[in-house]
Protein backbone atom coordinates (compact mmCIF):
# COMPACT_ATOMS: atom_id res chain seq x y z
CA UNK A 1 0.00 0.00 0.00
CA UNK A 2 1.33 3.46 -0.90
CA UNK A 3 1.50 5.69 2.13
CA UNK A 4 -0.09 9.06 1.57
CA UNK A 5 2.03 11.99 2.69
CA UNK A 6 0.05 14.87 4.15
CA UNK A 7 2.22 16.66 6.69
CA UNK A 8 5.54 15.01 5.92
CA UNK A 9 6.40 17.55 3.16
CA UNK A 10 5.95 20.34 5.74
CA UNK A 11 8.48 18.92 8.20
CA UNK A 12 10.57 22.10 8.24
CA UNK A 13 7.58 24.27 9.15
CA UNK A 14 6.29 21.73 11.68
CA UNK A 15 9.60 21.27 13.49
CA UNK A 16 9.43 24.51 15.56
CA UNK A 17 5.74 23.94 16.32
CA UNK A 18 6.38 20.43 17.56
CA UNK A 19 9.31 21.64 19.66
CA UNK A 20 7.02 24.20 21.28
CA UNK A 21 4.30 21.69 22.02
CA UNK A 22 6.74 19.01 23.22
CA UNK A 23 10.10 20.53 24.21
CA UNK A 24 11.76 17.09 24.29
CA UNK A 25 11.47 17.00 20.49
CA UNK A 26 13.54 20.17 20.05
CA UNK A 27 16.68 18.12 19.53
CA UNK A 28 15.16 15.97 16.78
CA UNK A 29 16.56 16.46 13.29
CA UNK A 30 14.31 16.70 10.26
CA UNK A 31 15.13 13.07 9.53
CA UNK A 32 14.16 12.11 13.09
CA UNK A 33 10.78 13.72 12.51
CA UNK A 34 10.00 11.22 9.75
CA UNK A 35 8.45 8.49 11.93
CA UNK A 36 6.56 11.08 14.00
CA UNK A 37 4.96 12.63 10.93
CA UNK A 38 4.35 9.21 9.39
CA UNK A 39 2.13 8.36 12.37
CA UNK A 40 0.29 11.64 11.89
CA UNK A 41 -0.15 10.99 8.18
CA UNK A 42 -1.49 7.52 8.90
CA UNK A 43 -4.09 9.04 11.18
CA UNK A 44 -4.97 11.63 8.54
CA UNK A 45 -5.18 9.17 5.67
CA UNK A 46 -8.92 8.56 6.07
CA UNK A 47 -9.86 12.18 6.68
CA UNK A 48 -11.42 14.25 3.89
CA UNK A 49 -9.05 16.02 1.52
CA UNK A 50 -10.62 19.36 2.42
CA UNK A 51 -9.58 18.88 6.04
CA UNK A 52 -6.06 17.92 4.98
CA UNK A 53 -5.84 21.07 2.84
CA UNK A 54 -7.09 23.25 5.70
CA UNK A 55 -4.51 21.75 8.01
CA UNK A 56 -1.64 22.41 5.61
CA UNK A 57 -2.86 25.96 5.07
CA UNK A 58 -3.06 26.49 8.83
CA UNK A 59 0.54 25.33 9.26
CA UNK A 60 1.69 27.75 6.56
CA UNK A 61 -0.24 30.57 8.26
CA UNK A 62 1.49 29.77 11.54
CA UNK A 63 4.84 29.82 9.76
CA UNK A 64 4.32 33.26 8.20
CA UNK A 65 2.24 34.92 10.92
CA UNK A 66 5.23 36.24 12.97
CA UNK A 67 6.48 38.14 9.92
CA UNK A 68 3.85 40.75 10.73
CA UNK A 69 4.96 41.11 14.34
CA UNK A 70 8.63 40.10 14.44
CA UNK A 71 9.74 40.42 10.79
CA UNK A 72 10.72 36.76 10.78
CA UNK A 73 9.07 33.38 10.29
CA UNK A 74 8.11 31.02 13.10
CA UNK A 75 11.38 29.18 12.54
CA UNK A 76 13.30 32.39 13.29
CA UNK A 77 11.66 33.03 16.65
CA UNK A 78 13.21 32.06 19.95
CA UNK A 79 11.53 29.20 21.87
CA UNK A 80 10.06 31.77 24.28
CA UNK A 81 8.61 33.84 21.45
CA UNK A 82 7.12 30.78 19.82
CA UNK A 83 5.56 29.66 23.08
CA UNK A 84 4.07 33.11 23.60
CA UNK A 85 2.61 33.25 20.12
CA UNK A 86 1.10 29.76 20.16
CA UNK A 87 -0.22 30.25 23.70
CA UNK A 88 -1.92 33.45 22.56
CA UNK A 89 -3.55 31.58 19.70
CA UNK A 90 -4.66 28.81 22.03
CA UNK A 91 -6.71 31.21 24.14
CA UNK A 92 -7.64 33.81 21.52
CA UNK A 93 -11.19 34.94 20.93
CA UNK A 94 -11.57 33.35 17.49
CA UNK A 95 -12.96 29.84 17.84
CA UNK A 96 -11.69 28.72 14.42
CA UNK A 97 -8.11 29.63 15.34
CA UNK A 98 -8.38 27.87 18.70
CA UNK A 99 -9.84 24.80 17.03
CA UNK A 100 -7.12 24.82 14.37
CA UNK A 101 -4.38 24.96 16.96
CA UNK A 102 -6.07 22.26 19.07
CA UNK A 103 -6.36 20.02 16.03
CA UNK A 104 -2.72 20.47 15.05
CA UNK A 105 -1.61 19.95 18.65
CA UNK A 106 -3.66 16.76 18.88
CA UNK A 107 -2.25 15.36 15.66
CA UNK A 108 1.32 16.05 16.69
CA UNK A 109 0.58 14.36 20.02
CA UNK A 110 -0.54 11.30 18.03
CA UNK A 111 2.81 11.35 16.28
CA UNK A 112 4.79 11.60 19.52
CA UNK A 113 2.77 10.07 22.36
CA UNK A 114 1.36 7.41 20.03
CA UNK A 115 4.86 5.97 19.68
CA UNK A 116 5.12 2.80 21.81
CA UNK A 117 8.75 3.64 22.66
CA UNK A 118 7.75 7.06 24.01
CA UNK A 119 4.86 5.44 25.91
CA UNK A 120 7.27 3.01 27.54
CA UNK A 121 9.55 5.86 28.58
CA UNK A 122 6.55 7.42 30.34
CA UNK A 123 6.16 4.19 32.31
CA UNK A 124 3.20 2.87 30.34
CA UNK A 125 3.81 -0.85 29.84
CA UNK A 126 0.45 -2.49 29.19
CA UNK A 127 0.26 -6.24 29.17
CA UNK A 128 -2.51 -8.50 28.00
CA UNK A 129 -1.88 -10.59 31.12
CA UNK A 130 -2.93 -7.62 33.25
CA UNK A 131 -2.44 -8.17 36.97
CA UNK A 132 -0.42 -11.35 36.42
CA UNK A 133 2.18 -9.34 34.53
CA UNK A 134 2.04 -6.46 37.01
CA UNK A 135 2.79 -8.78 39.92
CA UNK A 136 5.49 -10.70 38.06
CA UNK A 137 9.01 -10.18 39.49
CA UNK A 138 10.28 -7.91 36.68
CA UNK A 139 7.11 -5.83 36.44
CA UNK A 140 6.91 -2.32 37.87
CA UNK A 141 5.91 -2.54 41.50
CA UNK A 142 3.20 -0.57 43.17
CA UNK A 143 4.87 1.74 45.63
CA UNK A 144 1.85 3.37 47.11
CA UNK A 145 -1.56 2.93 48.61
Amino acid sequence: MIRQEVLAPLARQIQPILATFIPATAKLSLADLGPVLARVDERLADEPEALQRQLKLFIRILWWLPVFTHLRTLGGLSPEQRLKMLSWLQDCGVTKLRVGLWGLRTLLFVGWYGDPAVQERLGYRPNIAGWDAWHAPQAPQNQGE
Binding site: F21, I22, L83, S87, V110, Y113, L122, G123, Y124, P140
Partner: peptide
Protein backbone atom coordinates in the same frame (compact mmCIF):
# COMPACT_ATOMS: atom_id res chain seq x y z
CA UNK B 1 -6.68 6.59 29.58
CA UNK B 2 -3.77 5.70 27.37
CA UNK B 3 -0.83 8.09 26.83
CA UNK B 4 -1.95 9.76 23.61
CA UNK B 5 -5.53 10.21 24.83
CA UNK B 6 -4.14 11.59 28.09
CA UNK B 7 -1.88 14.05 26.24
CA UNK B 8 -4.80 15.16 24.09
CA UNK B 9 -7.03 15.71 27.09
CA UNK B 10 -4.59 17.71 29.17
CA UNK B 11 -5.15 21.32 28.17
CA UNK B 12 -2.19 23.22 26.74
CA UNK B 13 1.29 22.26 25.68
CA UNK B 14 4.93 23.01 26.40
CA UNK B 15 7.05 22.23 29.42
CA UNK B 16 4.18 22.04 31.94
CA UNK B 17 2.25 19.63 29.76
CA UNK B 18 5.34 17.56 29.12
CA UNK B 19 6.18 17.37 32.82
CA UNK B 20 2.70 16.13 33.66
CA UNK B 21 2.93 13.48 30.95
CA UNK B 22 6.24 12.38 32.43
CA UNK B 23 4.35 11.79 35.68
CA UNK B 24 2.01 9.31 33.94
CA UNK B 25 2.70 6.52 36.43
Amino acid sequence: YFPFITAKNLTGFGADHERLMAAYE
